[in-house]
Structure formats: structure tokens, C-alpha cells
Amino acid sequence: MAEPITAPSDSSLQAIQDAARDVEALTRELQQIVVGQRTTLSGIITCMLAGGHALLEGVPGLGKTLMIRALARAVQLKFSRVQFTPDLMPADILGTSILIHDSDGVRGLRFEPGPVFANVLLADEINRATPKTQSALLEAMEEKQITTNGATRPLPDPFFVLATQNPLEQEGTYPLPEAQLDRFFFKLQVEFPSEAELVEILNRTTGTQAEPSLARLDGARLREIQGLCRSLPAPPSLHRYVARLVRATHPGTPDAPPMVKKFIRYGASPRGAQALVMAAKIQAALNERLFPSVEDVREVLFAALTHRVARNFEGEAEGVTPEAILEEVSAHIRPD
């Protein structure tokens, strides 16, 4: 006997629609400062809603720092910026204990927090620092806390690291370790603006146009939207599809396509699978849908996995891009 369909409850749909509208409004506000770059902006917002970190890659002068600064202002979060250089030390990021004299003349050590103690941390040109300094961010990015002098200190909530790197200047730079790359939710390419966008940039930046006031979301609303996105139910077949997709990026698995077996040294980690599902849910929510689909996964596939698959020498020598390999994987793996 057929079960009667219960009366539709619009509360969930309504909540999702409200969240999508707020995010859309935030994007529109950001577009007043950042010309174009809608895909990059959308990726950064997705990272933020997922509670992850983003790595932006692009040539200098494309507005990466501006974009992140504007986002921090728009969500009314504490923002700090660190310019990574080869002589930067971990203490310069995390903070250090300094010797102080109190009013009573007693000397003691007091921890002076570093720039990491912020809601939004812009790590500018992160690949210019040595691996030792880069690894200072490992605990902060994954555990949202730091440990110095034997004391563990939590970081503000929410906490996002938005890092940038320049793909052109490789002299004196250090590639990010795989462990740190894996901690970035998305790696986003910042594209050069089109002619119309460039004209608009010139209009805005070479005139006397006043800087708009940005205040669209606060931390509480941001956390609420994050919770909504996480609550979306995902079909079991989607989880199976993502699992097969991630396993297929490993050259040793039987499902791996020939291109992976030939050009990949190692594939994406389970964090990659988590990022795929979470980003798909956010995509569904931003499109006012109550469940993620295979199309959502495919939409975020490159941003979530390009930095998580490592090519071998042959792949790099042949000039095979991670995007091409992931395209092959996506075509090779079919959903249930």
C-alpha cells in the first residue's frame, strides 16, 4: 500500500533559500570592489562556508589581496596579513613570549599572539617562506589551534587561511609540502581580467570613486549558513561516486584510468573526498537545492583536487596538467 506523501514542509527549503540569498548579496557587495573574478569569489566563499582554506594562484596585480581583504570586511571578521619571505620565522606568524615587567616590578613571560590569531589570515606569497615556516601553519589550519612553549591556544572561530602564490617567479621559492597543500580546501586560479573588466578596473581605481561600505554578514550568520550546508542530506550513491572518484586518482587502484597510471605519482587523500562532498553540498545550497548531485561534484572537482594529485616526472615533463587528468578520471568513473 502506498504511503501518503506528507505535507510539504517548507522550513528547510526556506532556510536554504534565505542562505542562498544572503550569500548572493555578499557576492554582489564584493563585486563592487572586485571587478570580475566571479568564479574565484565563489570559490573563496565556498571555502569559507565549508570552514576550509583557499590557496589562490595567480600573477601579481590581479587583486588577490584586495579580494581577501574585502571579504574579511564584508563578513565583519578580524583580518590579518602576513607577507611570507625567506627569512620569516614560525614565531613571526604564531607569536612569541616576551619578557615583561609588571607594575610591581615582577618580571615574567607573556605570550604575544602573532597574526595567526585572526578570523581571516592572508598568507601572501606563501611559497617564499621556507618549509619550516610554512609548516607552522599546519596545526593552525587543521586543528584551529596553535601550540607554543608547551601551551595550546585555540584560534578564533571561524578561522580561514587564504594564501596566495605566484606561479611565475620560482627563484628562491619553496613549493608547499604535500601535507600543507592537502589542508587547503580549494586551490583557485585567479585569471587575468577580460578587456571590459580591465576597463572597469581602470575606471574604479584611477578616479575618485568612494570605497563602498561592506557589511553583509556577521560571524554568527556565517556559522549558521555553515551548519545549514552541512545538514543537507546527500544520496548514498553520491558518496560512493566520490569515493570511486578519489580512489581512481591513485595509480595503484584497478579503477584508475590509463592516464592516471602513467602520469600520477600519488592521488587525492580522504580530505579530498571530504572537500568534494562538502563543496557539492554548498553548491547545492547556493543553488537553492536540498541535496547535492553528481553535477555539483563535477563542478567543484578541479578546485578541490588539482592540488591534491601529484604528477610524476613523466607527467610534468610531458606537460600533462592535473586538470586533464581529472577530466579523464571524471569521464572514466560513472555514477551508479
Partner: peptide, 24 residues
């Protein structure tokens, strides 16, 4: 085809509501 027990936890109401909307 799945079980309703899948939707437990703090957001169980939201999940049930979402599924109901999906069925409709």
C-alpha cells in the same frame, strides 16, 4: 529506499524536512 534512522542528530528535523520536500 533508505532508512529514516539515517537522519538523526541535531539537524534531524532539518533533514526530515528536506527529504519531505524532495519527495514532494
Amino acid at each position: 529506499a533508505g532508512s529514516e534512522e539515517d537522519s538523526v542528530g541535531a539537524d534531524a528535523d532539518f533533514v526530515r524536512s528536506a527529504k519531505s520536500s524532495i519527495y514532494t
